[in-house]
Simulated assay, not measured.
Amino acid sequence: MSDDGVHLENVHLALDVAALGAEMQSLRTVDGREVLWQGDAAFWGGRAPVLFPIVGRAPKNRIAVGEFEAEMAQHGFARRSVFELEKSSPEMCRHVLRDSDATRAVYPFEFALRLTHRLDGAAVEVRAEVENCSEGEMPFGFGFHPAFVWPLPGCAGQQHEVVLDNGGAPLRAALEDGLLAAGTHPSPFDAGRLSITPGMFDQDALVFPEGAGPGLRYGVAGGANLTFQFDTLPNLALWSKPGAPFLCIEPWHGMAARVGGSHQIAERPFSVTLPAGGVARFGYRMALNL
C-alpha cells in the first residue's frame, strides 16, 4: 500500500489496512481472489468501516452526554479519522485513535480506540479495544461494518445464504429514517438459514437486536464460504444497497437511537457505559473457505 497504509501477508492471505479509519481495503487469497467489497461510489464507497462512538443514527443527527450536546453523523467519527500506526509485523498491525480537539468538540471524553488486524492461517482476526482515559463514565456504541463481495469468487449464479451457528430465528427490528422503530417483526431466518436475494434490502438493513448468536456462515451451501465468530457483539445487521454486488455483515454492541427517543448516548439500546480507566474489548474472526 501507500505510505499511510499497511500490507500484511502470509502463505494464505494478503490484507491491506489504511490509516484512515483503520479500515481494511483489500482481503484476498494469495492467488488473487478478492473477498472484500472494493468501495464503488456508485453504490457505497465504504469497505469495512469501524463504528464509534455511536452505531446508526442519532435523532436529528445530534447526540447528548448529560448537558453536553453536539452534532454527530451516522455511525460516529472514527471511520473518518486518521489512526496512528502503533505496531506492525508481516502478519499483524495495530492502529490507535486518541481524542483530540476535534473529537472533544463533539464527544467530551479522553479515550483511546485501538484496532488490531492479524492474519492467522486462512483467517483474519479484527480486534478493538476502547479505553476510557477520562475521569468519569463514558457511554458509547461500537460496531464493525465489513462488506464482502456477493457473489463470492467463483460462485457467480449460485444461491448465497447466511446460516447462524445457533440455528435460531432472531426477531427483526425495523428502521425508520435510520432510527430504531418500536416493536419487532417475524424473523426471516428459518432454522438459522436465510437466503440472500435481490430486493431484500430495499427497505434498509435487516437488524437483529438479539438472538443471532456468536457465529455464522456466509456463502454457498456445500461450497465456498466465509465463517465468522464474534466476541462481545450481541447485535447483528445485514445490509446492502439495492442492486449492489456486496453484503455487509455487521456485528455491533450498540444500536441506533429509537424513533422519538433521547439524544443521550447512554440511553440508546445496547450502549456501553465504561467506568473511568476501564477498557472494553470487541472482535471477530473470519475464516476463508474458498
Rank of each mutant, 00 (worst) to 15 (best):
G45R: 11
S81N: 10
G183T: 11
W37H: 01
V96L: 11
L194G: 00
P170H: 05
G261W: 05
S187G: 02
A123S: 13
H263D: 12
A182V: 04
Q158N: 05
H160Q: 12
M138Y: 05
V272F: 02
A244S: 10
G199P: 05
A73D: 14
G223K: 02
A181P: 10
L115F: 14
I54P: 01
L216Y: 03
G32M: 03
D3K: 15
E135T: 12
T273I: 14
F201G: 04
Q159S: 06
V11Y: 13
G167E: 09
L179K: 09
C155F: 11
E84R: 15
L206G: 11
M255H: 12
A73W: 06
G46C: 11
E110I: 05
E9V: 15
A287P: 04
G76V: 03
G121S: 04
S26E: 14
L20H: 15
I249L: 15
R127C: 07
A147Y: 06
I196M: 09
E135F: 02
A58C: 03
L97Y: 00
L8T: 02
D120A: 12
V82R: 14
E34H: 12
F282Y: 15
E135W: 02
A48Q: 10
D204K: 09
L115C: 12
E71S: 08
P59K: 09
E84T: 15
E210S: 15
E250A: 04
M200P: 10
Y284M: 10
E129F: 04
D31T: 14
F189C: 04
G178P: 01
E71F: 08
H75P: 09
G277F: 02
H95E: 09
S271F: 06
V162D: 09
D120N: 15
L180Q: 03
G283M: 08
V96S: 13
N235H: 03
A173Q: 14
L164Y: 12
A237R: 07
D190Q: 13
L179C: 05
